[in-house]
């Protein structure tokens, strides 16, 4: 689903969280919102989901004007930073929640719901864990359950808030590769928020660099590294990764998985 955002504004008191944002997201694209904390990236993500009331502007999902639609009507898959899995429900019940709360008219039969849940569990490589509860899962597993739960409603767009923020470094790397593969398999339009430029540059088709409620640059990772549009972008992208990530020397793929992911992305 193609998303277009026009003149999106939001302020908290006198502080502008979003400053007349214009952004077009192509169908099937994997887009990163990159910026320091307070740059408005999470506010933008939540505004797309309808979780954050906006002051002005329009949001379109394909041919639909989504600006006035409620959260429920927007049908976005949202993965929260800390996953927000329902603690008192099994993994399967979590994943199928979005199907089970539908109006009877649109609700699949019980066996069909179960089948879809199991299918999604296999997709996120957690087959056999349907009866577990969230507290019996590792961080990486929880994240994949949250993703499966978001995918269950066949969302118009998949939104992820700091998807790897709560994981340790090793798991983070693995999940990053896996998420890229999953995206390429399923083809959902995906937007994720991160403050980690390495994550944004390695994973996304295009990166939106945000600062103080405004977009500084929207471009491919290569272009952002090679031709930073503003001083802010140049400094933000180089900081931390100094020496490792420069325009002339992009990071070498480290594992077979990453090489595959890279080939998919470049190809």
């Amino acid at each position: 689903m193609q998303i277009s955002i026009r003149q999106l504004s939001k302020s908290y008191g006198s502080v502008a969280a979003l400053n007349a944002i214009d952004l077009d997201i192509a169908s099937g694209e994997l887009l990163a919102l990159l910026g320091p904390s307070g740059s408005g990236k999470t506010t933008l993500l939540r505004a797309i989901a309808g979780l954050e009331p906006i002051d002005g502007g329009r949001i379109r999902f394909g041919d639909i004007d989504a600006t006035e639609l409620s959260v429920q009507e927007r049908r976005v898959g949202f993965v929260f930073q800390h996953y927000a899995l329902f603690k008192h429900m099994s993994v399967l019940d979590n994943i199928t929640f979005g199907l089970r709360v539908r109006k009877r008219k649109y609700r699949p039969a019980r066996e069909e719901i179960r089948r879809r849940g199991e299918e999604l569990l296999k997709l996120v490589q957690l087959g056999g864990l349907e009866a577990r509860y969230p507290n019996q899962l590792s961080g990486g597993q929880r994240q994949r359950v949250a993703l499966a739960r978001a995918l269950a409603i066949e969302p118009r767009v998949l939104l992820l808030d700091e998807p790897f923020g709560a994981l340790d470094a090793k798991v983070r790397k693995e999940l990053r590769v896996w998420l890229r593969q999953l995206h390429d398999e399923t083809g959902y339009t995906t937007v994720f928020v991160t403050h980690d430029q390495e994550e944004a540059l390695e994973l996304a088709d295009r990166v939106v660099v945000m600062n103080a409620g405004s977009i500084e640059q929207v471009d491919t990772p290569e272009a952002i590294l090679r031709r930073p549009a503003t001083r802010f972008v140049a400094e933000f992208v180089e900081r931390d990764a100094a020496g490792q990530y420069t325009a002339a020397h992009p990071p070498p793929p480290r594992t077979v998985h990453e090489r595959v992911a890279r080939a998919v992305r470049v190809g």
């Binding site: 959260v71 927007r74 949202f78 929260f80 927000a84 979005g98 739960r149």
Partner: peptide, 22 residues
């Protein structure tokens, strides 16, 4: 945490469903 209710809402749950089930 309100995040649970927000999660329920993004999954299509009405306010009442979010309160009663979550």
């Amino acid at each position: 945490d309100r995040q649970y209710e927000e999660a329920a809402a993004t999954l299509g749950a009405t306010r009442w469903q979010a309160v009663s089930r979550i």
